[in-house]
Simulated assay, not measured.
Amino acid sequence: MDGQLLVCDTQRGLVRVDPRDGAVRVLAGGAGGEPLRFCSNVALGADGALYFSVSCRRYALEDWMGDILEHTGTGQLLRRRPGGEPEVLLDGLHLANSVALAEDESFVIVAESSAYRIRRLWLSGPRSGRCDTSRVPRQHFARARGRVLGRSGRAPGTRRRLAAPNVSHVQESGVAQGEAVHPRPRRTVRVMALRPDGGLPCDLSRAKSPYRMVTSVCRSGSCLIMGSLIESGCAVCELPVSPSAFAG
């Protein structure tokens, strides 16, 4: 974006940062009368449109475990056209994270972490406006030359809690217990390259990783760049396979 960085700031929303002088401009601070308190990932379209996710509208970033335990389903996928206001494309998402555009931008994908699935919203063509759902275990996605990259990482014991009845007092009790125990995410990282047809040309994983809870990934040349929900920086690693595995 003209050499500038797009940043999802959990306090200010979607912002643009000029790396030359550090100047910050807020592009979207709210939507539908609500502040963007848990803005998560963003993808830039060729026409300048920004597609971005809000993980949760009930809990802030520091309380992300509460959203997983309570299964609030208050996440969103939004779009901001150049000069316009954010519009909600998908609502009711479960801890929405990574966002990816198809190479031809015919669809956009958003990952739902606590639902272990992805949503694909068609933006053009005969299926425009339709939404498909695929259950791919614990994936997060990013654009990579016609491929979709995914990662995996989770806190222990959360899936069993998600199966609890959808009753308010049970959910609140589970959140309180979860905050008391505060389970730590396992040190496991998994990155997958997924074709739009569901093919899997590359599947990488590492146990006992020094970098935990990866929630975003993108490819730059022969490197993978990963972001985390809990770490204070990004992780960069060389691809152990040829970049041609990700080529269109």
Rank of each mutant, 00 (worst) to 15 (best):
43 A>Y: 05
112 E>K: 02
101 L>T: 03
43 A>D: 05
143 R>L: 03
92 G>M: 06
216 S>I: 00
186 R>P: 00
165 P>S: 10
226 M>L: 14
170 V>E: 09
14 L>F: 04
64 W>R: 08
110 V>F: 01
140 H>W: 11
196 P>A: 03
6 L>R: 04
187 R>P: 15
211 Y>P: 00
89 L>W: 07
93 L>Y: 03
27 L>Q: 06
172 E>R: 15
181 V>C: 09
234 C>P: 09
221 G>A: 04
205 S>T: 02
98 S>Q: 11
135 R>N: 03
11 Q>K: 14
168 S>M: 10
128 S>N: 04
163 A>S: 11
142 A>P: 02
132 D>K: 08
16 R>H: 02
167 V>F: 07
122 W>I: 02
156 P>W: 00
157 G>K: 09
226 M>W: 04
164 A>M: 08
162 L>D: 14
72 T>E: 14
209 S>P: 00
209 S>T: 08
61 L>G: 03
161 R>F: 11
79 R>N: 02
207 A>D: 15
155 A>K: 06
163 A>C: 05
213 M>E: 13
49 A>Q: 02
144 A>C: 12
213 M>D: 12
172 E>N: 11
176 A>K: 08
146 G>K: 01
148 V>S: 09
132 D>N: 06
186 R>D: 08
182 H>R: 15
175 V>F: 12
207 A>T: 08
118 I>D: 05
30 G>A: 10
31 A>V: 12
234 C>Q: 06
81 R>M: 07
186 R>Q: 12
3 G>Q: 12
232 S>D: 15
96 A>G: 04
150 G>Q: 07
42 V>G: 04
69 L>C: 10
178 G>T: 06
8 C>M: 10
166 N>L: 13
65 M>F: 14
25 R>T: 15
37 R>A: 04
30 G>W: 09
190 R>V: 13
117 R>T: 03
12 R>Q: 14
84 G>K: 02
191 V>T: 14
56 C>W: 00
79 R>P: 00
177 Q>K: 12
198 G>P: 11
245 A>T: 06
243 P>E: 03
113 S>R: 07
65 M>A: 13
197 D>Y: 01
159 R>C: 01
84 G>C: 01
232 S>G: 09
150 G>T: 03
2 D>H: 10
198 G>W: 01
92 G>E: 01
220 S>Y: 13
181 V>H: 15
142 A>M: 05
52 F>N: 03
91 D>L: 00
246 F>G: 09
164 A>E: 12
206 R>H: 08
171 Q>T: 00
141 F>L: 04
220 S>V: 12
159 R>E: 11
237 C>T: 13
63 D>F: 04
48 G>C: 05
238 E>V: 14
213 M>Q: 08
23 A>F: 02
182 H>V: 01
228 S>D: 00
131 C>N: 11
149 L>F: 10
157 G>W: 09
145 R>G: 13
34 E>L: 13
62 E>F: 07
26 V>C: 07
164 A>Y: 05
141 F>A: 01
108 V>R: 08
138 R>G: 10
5 L>E: 05
76 Q>Y: 07
183 P>Y: 12
141 F>H: 07
247 A>Y: 07
40 S>R: 08
178 G>C: 11
48 G>P: 05
233 G>Y: 07
240 P>D: 10
137 P>G: 06
70 E>L: 12
98 S>Y: 01
114 S>T: 02
